[in-house]
Design a binder for these strands. Sequence first.
DNA 1: ACATCCCCTTAGCC
DNA 2: AGGCTAAGGGGAT
Length: 297
Amino acid sequence: MEIQLDQVVTPFNLRHTLECGQVFRWKRLGGWLYGVVREKVIKIRQVGDRLQFQSFPERVDADCIRNYFRLDDDLPFILSEISKDEHIKKAIQHFYGLRITRQEPWECLISYICATYKNIPAIKEMIQNLCRQFGRKMTFDGYHFYTFPKPSALAEASLEDVRKCRLGFRARRVLETSQIIDNGELDLETLRQVDYEKVKLELVRLPGVGHKVADCILLFSLDRLQAFPVDIWMKKIILEFYPEFFNQSFIKTACKRRSITHHEYEKFSNFGKKYFGAYGGYAQEYLFHWKRLKQVV
DNA sequence: ACATCCCCTTAGCC
DNA sequence: AGGCTAAGGGGAT
């Protein structure tokens, strides 16, 4: 199947979108990108302004793809809204077409609990282990894929088995959070309707979920495009490009410490929301990807 | 080689 | 209240 994009009205860049670090389960295999979304393997590639895809074992329609990649977001408008200065403009220019994804809240929640204090390759490894251990196997094009484990599968697992997935101290947090979700104490899907601050309060009650993880879940799976997660990279970016928005002594203290205090988190995240506005999350992702790639090169 | 540091942070202690 | 520190283990340096 195929989706015809109009790069003026619906700019999209599949590669940037999947490689910017917001998702952990996509793989490049033989010219295609393969991922698992809602129990189905998706095989997708972009040829110019055509988005070609197949799926297994059942067919997904174009709406599913549009939904996952947020193709209905008015990206030209969003990018014009966040184009506040030369730094963000440069990042946008570099990765034009990068979109925030609309992930499944459950998978997003567990993924970002795992993401605590880990680098991206290691996060991918942990999630892969979890899926291999607790998911269902699917074989497509000769490659093996696994569904993301259901809440019950993780809730019923032993701490030891979760630990075997190399989760370290995150194992207990994943297990306990899975039990809360499986019990129905918190219904993730209904959180889309609740307002931002209330959802955040609900999320941070889960073991392993602090403000940063909650903001990632809000941004990548609960449609809160104003959420502005601040990790160590975003801290570096703000200290480097936007120090004039804070008082000098605060910046000086923040520079001395690599990690982020709760106080710093609030100040930086609120800055992001205020400065970039309703689509701060998009600004965050463009800046994040730009900074990380620049660091590598 | 081989330490040592770093890691898209959280939670618990003081 | 807010700052400090420990917490798997793999990959980078």
